[in-house]
Design a binder for these strands. Structure first.
Lengths: 234, 234
DNA sequence: ATGTAAACCTGATAATTGTCACAATCGTTT
DNA sequence: AAACGATTGTGACAATTATCAGGTTTACAT
């Protein structure tokens, strides 16, 4: 981790897709006074599982994973975060320790907002408070979907779903590849399967013409068939 | 569903374990004026998946399941609710349709609180607002745990965990049996497995002296061994 | 450019779990 | 009490997935 040149919150580009966009200009200036900006290199732990964070990070750019260490030493990626997401808010608001480590998937610039400040805003700004609550409830809905998927779908279906989810969350780069780089092991940890099984399925998809791969990059070729495999309802 | 004699919220016994306990006496009286009380018989749908509820139910007594219909027509139980729980709050606050049906596991008495009233309280009562948010964040933490369990544990481990979870949530009746009655199919839908597999595992547990069963009732005999099987961390 | 560790891939095999078919039991209605 | 349907239970088998044991390629530091 290293510190970085701070941007003024008022001019920050992430506003449109960030709950902090609901704060007043004065409140944003308050953040400016207290916040700390830092850069985490790819692979670095931003917040470790089990710790009680003293505030939240707002992602300025980059990508992160929320990864939970299960009892048998295997990791599971329960969520991904990107520009505009607040990291650790669940833990701060529930006053519980972090149930997952937050790790940088690429070099990631974040701003730290102390817990006290966040709670102030919630107390004083009803609009912000409501949108925080909405965020939590939406995330809860996502989790519910994930639970049903893990419980009812097989690995092939879940992989198709993960690929489409990545497309929805991160979009495509200029070459039409998914704009996020994940190792095979990380894919496996998202799908909830062994790395070998995941590799085999990815090549199956490649053979069937559903995707193309180029080292760490993946391109979705036939999204409709993928959606059929995933059996998406919504 | 049938209507029931309303109890005054101020004197309601569920306060201690209910977010509504954070409301002022005046706010509770407001609920009294607007609320509707009803009883759902065992098996009745309280709120159907896909609908957008116009308010929430507060459980006065009884037990409910949150059950999601997956794409292959199989149900999955993602959560259970009991006295003091608010039903449908996630959907109301996220302004999304219900991702699961809420179904009575036994005769269940509930009070309906309109959405507008709930939002008023959130706008005007910071303490209540915060405790609603905490509730959402705690539920989110629970979901995360469930996700990791489904992804990393096998059926046997998950069954052990479900049994312990039921014990923690519902406790024991006077005969030391779990104070909740579920069919084998419902157990299977909680664990995320086929009914036949679940039945086999339950008899295994019985043979190994971990549990006793009596028709629909289950008694935990060796909670320590169950915890070992489930590999509980916390 | 070269050595080394990590990541990726493949095959063989074992373990887990699901599916189907059917029998036994229980509870409810007639 | 008989009859019906729903639930519970069992066995055989198939499908899915994990594990282990290797090879190959890639990325990166020196």
């Amino acid at each position: 981790m290293s510190s970085a040149i701070p941007v003024h919150c008022k001019e920050c580009s992430v506003h449109n897709n960030c709950v902090l966009g609901h704060l007043t200009p004065e409140e944003l200036e308050q953040i400016d006074r207290d916040k700390g900006c830092s850069i985490f290199k790819k692979g670095q732990i931003i917040m470790p599982q089990g710790s009680k964070p003293s505030g939240v990070y707002c992602v300025f750019n980059g990508k992160v994973k929320f990864t939970r260490l299960g009892s048998e030493g295997r990791d599971h990626i329960i969520r991904l975060g990107t520009k505009g997401d607040l990291l650790g808010y669940r833990s701060v608001l529930a006053n519980e320790s972090l149930s997952a480590s937050i790790v940088a998937l690429e070099d990631t610039q974040v701003c730290f907002i102390p817990k006290s400040l966040l709670l102030n805003f919630i107390n004083e700004n009803v609009g912000f408070s409501l949108s925080m609550m909405q965020q939590a409830c939406q995330d809860l809905g996502e989790s519910g979907k994930m639970i049903t998927n893990l419980a009812q779908k097989n690995v092939r279906q879940r992989l198709a779903e993960v690929l489409l989810m990545l497309n929805a969350k991160f979009g495509k780069d200029q070459d039409d590849f998914l704009d996020v780089k994940l190792s095979r092991e990380e894919y496996a940890n998202m799908v909830g399967t062994a790395t070998e099984t995941l590799i085999r399925l990815l090549s199956d998809f490649k053979i069937e013409g559903l995707i193309e791969t180029n080292v760490k990059r993946v391109k979705l070729v036939d999204e409709i068939k993928l959606a059929n495999i995933a059996q998406l309802e919504n």
